[in-house]
Amino acid sequence: MSLVIDSVYKKFQRFPALNGASLTAPQGAFVALLGPSGSGKTTLLRILGGLEQADSGAVRFADLNWLDMPARQRKAGFVFQQYALFRHMTVANNIAFGLEVRPRAERPAKAEIQRRVEELLELVQLKDLGKRYPSQLSGGQRQRVALARALAIEPRMLLLDEPFGALDTKVRKELRVWLRHIHDKAGVTSVFVTHDQDEAFEMADLVAVMNKGRIEQVGAPQDVRRDPRTAFVSEFLSA
């Protein structure tokens, strides 16, 4: 059940954001999309999430023609750089959201939803903060809520768009370790966008270096570092 991205193209008006991006990753892998701004990594992530549509290309995952499904059917948990928490809802209600909007047939009972929310709050180490509002939390706490909310829907895939970009260095470092730990526990395929090399190399099983809308090289962190395949990759990594 690997993730196969095949020649995805996307243009914004005249600007070619994705120019034939391709990538294969095994089930459960933690993939980092690494590259400078404008390389197309966020666009590719948003296409995986169903927030943008590809002009052409295909994605297969979990035996599904991924790009044929609208976002709400994909069960692809998305974590935004600016958290995108529902400010008018408590932390607990934020996390419960994905379960509460399910059609009646699939919706768990209220008690069950509550139980899951509690479970997730513990997982992200925010145990007693369920009744708080996002505005009462720190940046790091908000991002953990965002992750818990995405995990609540038991996603097939986890997509993270520079999730620590808005946080300070110390918090970033703590959250990196923690996120990798959560990923290992949950066992879900994750795609993680970053422009920070250290972050990518520290966390990922597979690093995909992107440039100008194409994935120039994919591999295990140490392999990519030791053996850069194009001029761009070697320059980018030595910077």
Binding site: A76, F78, F80, F97, G98, V101, R149, A150, L159
Partner: peptide, 9 residues
Amino acid sequence: EAAATLGAT
């Protein structure tokens, strides 16, 4: 967008 990814219509 977040709501859509979480499954809301």
